[in-house]
Amino acid sequence: MTDFTADERGPAHCAGTGSFRTRVGRSRCAADPKRYLWVLGLIAPCCALLPSQLVLHTDATVFWWIGPIIMLIVIPVLDWVIGDDGRNPREEDYELLSNDRYYRWCTYLFLPIQLTGLFIAGAMWAGDELSLVDKLGLAATLGFVSGIGINAAHELGHRVEHLERWLAKIALAQSGYGHFFVEHNRGHHVRVATPEDSASGRLGESLWEFLPRSISGGFRSAIALERERLARRELGWWSVHNHILQAWSMSLALFGTLVALFGWAVLPWLVLQAVIGFGLLETVNYVEHYGLLRVRKSNGNYARCSPRDSWNSDRLVTNIFLFHLQRHSDHHANPGRRYQTLRGSTQAPQLPAGYATMIVLAAIPPLWRAVMNERVLAHYGGDISLANIQPRKRRKYLA
């Protein structure tokens, strides 16, 4: 019995027969019926390109806020209307999907669109045409693009290919969160769903308590992990091989270029969009493992991460928008799997909605607790002691 099962209904087939190219195209489409939907994931960085044109043609200044509107309103509504994906790739199609470079280009193209939007925004922040509220809306939109850009970096950073790992660092430049490259792979994936992991939310811990703990804890962990790695190679902190310094230098170069082009007036807006970006990332971290705790073995070590240690959702629209991030259990079990091959798990606890909706709920702690605490309790069969509980609330919950 396996944790992850393929859809027994089999994939839908694309129409068309005839030439070799047509047959290959049909084979690829049969392996992944969502194949041509993945390009829609580029809507996220395009949000940074759209506001000026939409406002120009409609005079509706609300479009400066198009990033939050799409992420927090449009996608949750579409998730509710369209519903779940419900289909897993077949094991026999794994190699075909993994080696298909089309999927890589869907993430590669994220970067030039993302950076082009940032330069356009820099010019608008530096000018006098926009009101303060409009500039705030543009910063919020760029912040959401920055946060979703971290998700693209997350996909690229797990790859062994040298190019993709460098692209991951470039994607992190806009958010200034380059240490994520180290902490996520070598920290979070090792300690996930344990009290030792700063990026795993605890039962009874609000998002607003979690954010400072996760941001500071992830920073300290990344520094320690990279210092240890360099020491094993007999290298000092200021080595050119330091992954954190490499990533941070890209942020400095990017922000420095924007300041040189548009003046110091853009710096506060760059900082604001970066804070919104990594705040969005950390909010997703909170959602992904809230209250979940890995089993501890008799020798004191934690058991290997299982599908039961991540909250999953299979809402189709958010799956496309976030490159299957919601199939999080398979990602932790098999971090080398590319996004197009990730599978839903029958054993993973399920969220009542997609990640986009859950981000909204997480921002309202009483609503979040009302929805999620009972689900954590049900996941552990009523035994709350099996959950990852906020220490200062442990006595209250166990009582």
Rank of each mutant, 00 (worst) to 15 (best):
A333R: 01
G382V: 07
A333V: 11
H332V: 09
P366Q: 12
Q350G: 04
M372Y: 05
L386G: 10
A363Q: 10
Y339K: 05
L386P: 00
N334Q: 13
P366G: 11
L367M: 13
P335N: 10
Q326H: 06
Y339T: 07
Q350I: 01
R343P: 01
M358N: 07
A333N: 10
H324S: 15
V371H: 00
P365K: 09
V360L: 13
G344Y: 04
S345W: 01
A378K: 14
A363T: 12
V371T: 08
T357C: 12
L342R: 12
Q326C: 10
G382N: 05
Q350Y: 06
L386K: 15
L386W: 01
T357I: 07
Y339D: 11
A353G: 09
D383W: 00
A378V: 03
Q350R: 14
A363V: 13
A363R: 01
R338F: 06
R369Y: 15
H328L: 02
L386H: 09
L342E: 13
M372Q: 13
A348Y: 02
R343F: 03
N373F: 04
A348W: 00
V371L: 02
Y355L: 12
L351F: 04
A362R: 04
Q340F: 00
H324A: 15
W368C: 09
T357M: 09
M372H: 06
A363L: 13
Q347A: 08
P352Y: 06
R343H: 07
I359W: 06
T357F: 08
L386R: 14
A378W: 04
P349M: 06
A362K: 02
V371P: 00
V371C: 07
A348N: 01
V360Y: 00
L361G: 05
A348S: 12
L361E: 03
L351S: 03
L342D: 13
H324N: 15
Y339N: 12
T346V: 08
L351N: 03
P365Q: 07
S329A: 14
G381W: 03
V360T: 12
Y355I: 12
R369C: 08
L386M: 14
G354R: 02
P366L: 10
S345I: 01
A348G: 03
A363H: 07
R343K: 13
A333C: 15
Y380K: 01
T357L: 10
G382K: 04
H328T: 08
R338H: 12
G381A: 07
V371S: 05
A370R: 09
L377C: 11
G382L: 08
E374K: 13
Q350H: 08
G336I: 02
L325K: 07
R327L: 06
S329K: 01
H328D: 10
L361R: 00
L325E: 11
D330N: 13
N373A: 05
P349I: 07
A348Q: 02
E374Q: 11
I384A: 03
P365D: 14
L386D: 09
S345Q: 05
H324V: 08
P366D: 14
Y380G: 05
Q350S: 08
L325F: 15
G354T: 12
R375A: 01
A362M: 08
I359A: 09
I364C: 12
P352W: 04
P365R: 02
R343W: 06
L386A: 14
A356K: 00
M358T: 04
Q347K: 11
G344M: 07
L377I: 15
A356N: 13
Y380Q: 02
D330A: 14
L361P: 00
H328I: 06
Y339F: 15
